[in-house]
Structures are given as structure tokens and as C-alpha cells.
Amino acid sequence: MARLNDGDALAGDWFRVLKRSAEPRARLICFPHAGGAASFFRDWADLVPDHVDLAAVRYPGREDRFLDPPPASMADLSRPVARACLASDDVPLLFFGHSMGASVAYEVALRMQSSGGSQVAELFVSGSSAPGRSSSSRDPLTMTDAEIRKDIAELGGADANTLADQELWELLIPSIRADYRLIGRYRAAFSGRAPLDVPVVAYYGRADRDVDAASVAAWADATSSTFAMRSFDGGHFYLKDHAPDLVADLLGRRAAFRA
């Protein structure tokens, strides 16, 4: 069976291994937000039990894939990630996606399902309205770089030092702009499709300006299986302050994934 070794495909282009298990019962794969990177989830390694592998998707155009061109569309991103996940399905796969990552995780899960291969055991989405639903009036396709910078600051997606460092910002903005355009095109093109046949759990911050309870509850229409939702205190990046409770909740949803 495949294992999370440095030589594995899972540790190659598309995944960063954050925690390995000698005998995993499940593999939690995390999908970062717009402008985010796999390292966002590195602190989760201390929260995941020893029988769960932890990995995060390495989006092109950032960190150790800085020179790789960012994907232009959701299909360009979800297609190769789905292939990589199908190549590492020796144990049940759990997907967790935050913000843009929720949409990416959903699309990857759909592609896996339509391929006839293994399906995701459970999809956890966070800080995101359901596909085809948005409570935000902002259009990512028309936002200027200055507006994107202001947006990230207001959402709390980057620390103040990063946003204040002009040279660093100029290095980061191409991939961030690409992410905003990707999600904007995805929203514009989304027309609905057959739902997933896997359980979906949605999380959000009660003070998130970009999502509300109704747009999160609409994730129920994205699955023909069970649906649940839970809110936390905080805004769009509530998970920074509530990571222990969040990870405990998602891994406690099924007995096989518990410590």
C-alpha cells in the first residue's frame, strides 16, 4: 500500500506531508484558501492523532512551487489534484477545504466520484458559501491589486508585516490575483451538477462578513448523503483561534477516525 514517504507521489508536486502514520486509518488532506499555502496547516500536525496522516495541497505559484504558473481555472487545478488523490487512496481520504479551498476540495471530490474510482470518505468545508451561492457583493474578477490587498487585511488572511512589506507583496500578488480570478470565474461559470454521494460538514465563523448561515446551509444541496454544520466565534479565519476544537470535531464525526 502507498505510504507518505518522501519518494511517494503524495509527497511530490501536489502534496506536502505534514504528519505520517505508520499504520494510518485515514488520511486528512487540507486545501488552503485563496493566497494561502500548504504551510497554513502545519500546526495541525500536533492536533491530529497518530493513526491519521496529514497532508496539504501545494498550489502552484507559491512557497516551494513559486516558479510554477498558477492555474487559470478550477478545472486546471482540480483535475491533477484528483488524479493525485486517486493514486493515494489506500486508506479513507478526508478533505478539509477553507474558503477557496472548500470549492477546490468539492470539485476534486466530484472528479473522483465521476471517475468511478475511490470516493472521499467525508468532505469538510469551511468559511465558504455553497457552490452557486454567495452572500458577498464583491466580484473577485474586477478587484484591483489594491482592493485585493485591502480585502486580505480585512479578512485577516495575512499578518500585518507581510502586507506592509512592499517587496514581499509584489512577489505574492501574482499568485493571489490568480486565485481571486480563479474563484471569480468559477462562480460565474457554475451551473450546478449532480451532487456528491458523501457526507458533508460545513463550518463557519459567526462574524464572517462573506458568508452567512443560509449560504453555508446550502451545502446540503451539494450532497445526496448526510449534511451537518457548525459555527464558531470569529470571522473568516476563525480557525486560527479554534483549530483544536475544529480538528477534534471533524475527526470525531466517525468512530474510525477518533483517537
Rank of each mutant, 00 (worst) to 15 (best):
A82E: 07
S191I: 04
S175D: 09
S103A: 15
F190L: 00
G127Y: 08
A84Q: 15
S137W: 08
F190T: 03
Y186K: 12
M100H: 05
F96K: 01
I176G: 10
P92G: 05
A105K: 06
A158G: 07
V125Y: 02
A130I: 00
P69M: 00
M100P: 11
G156I: 06
S175P: 06
A102R: 03
V200L: 05
S78D: 05
I173F: 10
Q119I: 03
Y186F: 15
A158L: 10
Y106Q: 00
S115H: 10
P174K: 09
E154L: 13
L171Y: 14
P140F: 01
Y106M: 05
S114K: 14
A84H: 06
Y186W: 13
D76C: 07
R83T: 03
L86F: 12
V125N: 01
S135L: 01
M74C: 11
G127Q: 04
Y186D: 04
Y180G: 09
S135Y: 08
A87Q: 11
V108C: 03
I173T: 03
S134V: 09
G156V: 03
D159Q: 07
A178D: 00
P131R: 04
K150S: 14
I152N: 05
R187P: 05
S126Q: 12
R138G: 02
S73P: 05
A146C: 10
S134M: 01
A164Q: 12
F190W: 15
Q166F: 12
S135A: 14
L93A: 04
R79G: 13
F124C: 14
S118L: 09
F124T: 10
I152H: 01
S118A: 15
P70F: 00
A72M: 12
S137Y: 09
E122T: 08
V201I: 07
V125H: 09
I176N: 02
F124K: 03
H98V: 10
L168W: 13
S99L: 12
R83N: 11
L110V: 04
W169P: 12
P140L: 00
G101N: 05
R185V: 00
D76S: 06
V198C: 11
I176Y: 08
A75Q: 14
Y106S: 04
M143G: 04
S137N: 10
P199F: 10
L93F: 10
R138Y: 03
P174H: 12
L77H: 04
L86T: 13
G117C: 06
A105F: 11
D197I: 06
E122C: 09
T144S: 15
E147C: 07
G156M: 01
Y180E: 02
D165G: 01
L182R: 10
R187A: 13
P80N: 11
V81M: 07
G132H: 02
M143V: 08
S88M: 02
A109P: 00
L155M: 12
L94E: 13
G101Y: 08
T142D: 09
S137K: 12
V81A: 10
E122F: 02
A194Q: 13
G157S: 08
A102C: 09
S191W: 00
L196W: 01
S114L: 11
D145G: 01
P70D: 05
D68P: 02
R79D: 15
R111W: 04
A146V: 09
G132P: 03
D165M: 01
S136R: 09
